[in-house]
Structure formats: C-alpha cells, structure tokens
Amino acid sequence: MAMTLRLEAEDEKTLAELAEMDGVSKQEATRRAIREAASRRHHQAGVAEASAWARDRYAEVLERLGK
C-alpha cells in the first residue's frame, strides 16, 4: 500500500540521519522504526501483564514480606 508521509523539517532531518547511520533508505528506516515501536509496546504490555499476574498470584506472600 502506498502512503505519503508528511514530516516537519526537524523530523525529516532526524529520519535522514537515522537512515544514513543504518545504511538504508529513509523508507526502510521508517519501516524499521514502526516495527521497533510496535515491538517495544507489545513487550511492555507483556511485562505489565506478567507483573499483574505475579502481584495477584503472590499478593499474600508480598503482604507478609511487607510486614
């Protein structure tokens, strides 16, 4: 799917620098940034879910340790 991405001048400069550092096109740098951001968010959600599960599962133990 084709898409037009409009960037502020500073964002365009940052994207160009990122692409240059990675030795890829700006298009590839954009794709990588999108995938990396999505991966980070999925990971953070997984960590939050595991943390909530552990707090629930071990609530009694944590309560006793806090005393």
Rank of each mutant, 00 (worst) to 15 (best):
G46T: 09
A19T: 01
A19C: 07
A37I: 01
E28F: 03
R64I: 10
T30V: 02
T4C: 01
R57M: 13
A16P: 03
L62P: 01
A9F: 05
Y58S: 04
T14L: 13
Q27R: 13
L18G: 00
E8K: 12
L7I: 03
R55H: 14
E17A: 08
E28T: 04
E28G: 03
E12Y: 08
L7V: 03
R55G: 00
H43Y: 10
K67N: 02
V24G: 08
V24L: 04
R64H: 05
R41P: 03
S25K: 05
A52P: 12
A37N: 07
R35L: 13
A19W: 04
E49Q: 12
A16R: 11
E20D: 10
E63T: 07
H42G: 02
D56C: 05
E8V: 12
E63G: 00
A37V: 01
L18K: 15
W53E: 11
L5E: 00
A33I: 04
R41K: 15
S25L: 04
R57G: 05
R41I: 06
R40F: 02
E8I: 09
R57C: 11
E8A: 12
M3Y: 01
E20W: 01
E49M: 08
T14W: 11
G23E: 08
Q44E: 14
E49L: 10
A19H: 05
A52Y: 12
Q44C: 04
I34G: 05
R6I: 07
R35V: 05
M1I: 05
A37W: 08
L5S: 01
A59W: 03
R32A: 10
G66Y: 00
D56N: 12
A54Y: 15
A59T: 06
T30M: 07
A50M: 11
L7G: 04
E12D: 10
R6G: 00
A50L: 14
T14C: 04
G23V: 10
V47S: 07
R35G: 12
L65T: 01
E8R: 13
Q27Y: 11
H42W: 10
V47H: 06
V61W: 14
R57D: 11
A38S: 08
R57T: 15
R41T: 05
M21S: 06
R64K: 14
R55T: 14
A52C: 04
S39W: 08
L7A: 04
Q44G: 01
R64F: 00
S51E: 14
R35Y: 06
K13Y: 09
H43S: 11
E63I: 02
